[in-house]
Simulated scan of single mutants.
Amino acid sequence: MTGSFWWDLLVGVAATMLVAWLVLVVALVVVVRPRGGLLREALRLLPDVLRLIRRLAADKTLPCGVRVRLALLLAYLALPINPVPDFIPVLGYADDAIVVTAVLRGVVRRAGLAAVRAHWPGNDDGFEALARLTGIRTMSS
């Protein structure tokens, strides 16, 4: 096998990874992204949401699948490698907010609103914003 084969293979793999990355970014921004001003709210709520995730992940009364998802989410947020690097303005942290929103939607559907409300560390306005982000309805809305 010649050097040209390995070069072509390397370029092909790099091009494939680039296309896969672009598809992931588009999916995050277009499909899962919170609508309207909700992305800004998601970024504002991030400290409370991180405490919520940690508390929910430690709650032994929740289904194991929910706790595993939350633990994986915490690991994702702790990793220095993201699909969109944090040094890119706006989108750098927006991808974290989008992933958190998507996971929390599933957690609320599976664990229920009461479990999430019981562990919410912030104020009622913050919880209302979280409810809008996850697409759930609260008693006051």
Score class of each variant (00 low, 15 high):
12 G>V: 02
121 P>A: 02
129 A>C: 08
4 S>V: 12
44 R>G: 10
27 A>L: 15
136 I>S: 04
41 E>T: 04
136 I>Y: 01
34 P>H: 01
129 A>Q: 09
73 L>N: 08
130 L>Y: 00
81 I>Q: 05
91 L>C: 11
140 S>M: 10
33 R>T: 06
27 A>P: 06
104 L>G: 04
30 V>Y: 12
11 V>W: 15
52 L>C: 11
107 V>K: 03
2 T>N: 11
2 T>E: 06
99 V>S: 11
109 R>H: 13
68 V>T: 07
96 D>E: 14
109 R>K: 13
55 R>T: 13
13 V>G: 09
133 L>P: 00
10 L>W: 07
16 T>A: 14
58 A>K: 08
45 L>K: 02
29 V>N: 13
25 V>W: 05
104 L>C: 02
95 D>I: 03
139 M>T: 15
61 T>H: 07
62 L>G: 05
117 R>E: 08
119 H>A: 11
40 R>L: 05
31 V>N: 13
88 I>P: 05
7 W>Q: 15
69 R>G: 09
72 L>K: 14
6 W>Y: 14
16 T>V: 12
41 E>S: 09
127 F>P: 01
70 L>G: 02
46 L>K: 03
68 V>L: 04
112 G>T: 03
26 V>W: 11
123 N>A: 15
131 A>P: 00
36 G>T: 01
57 A>N: 03
89 P>V: 06
128 E>D: 15
3 G>P: 03
61 T>Y: 02
111 A>F: 04
119 H>Y: 02
134 T>L: 00
46 L>H: 07
85 P>S: 05
55 R>C: 07
111 A>S: 07
19 V>W: 08
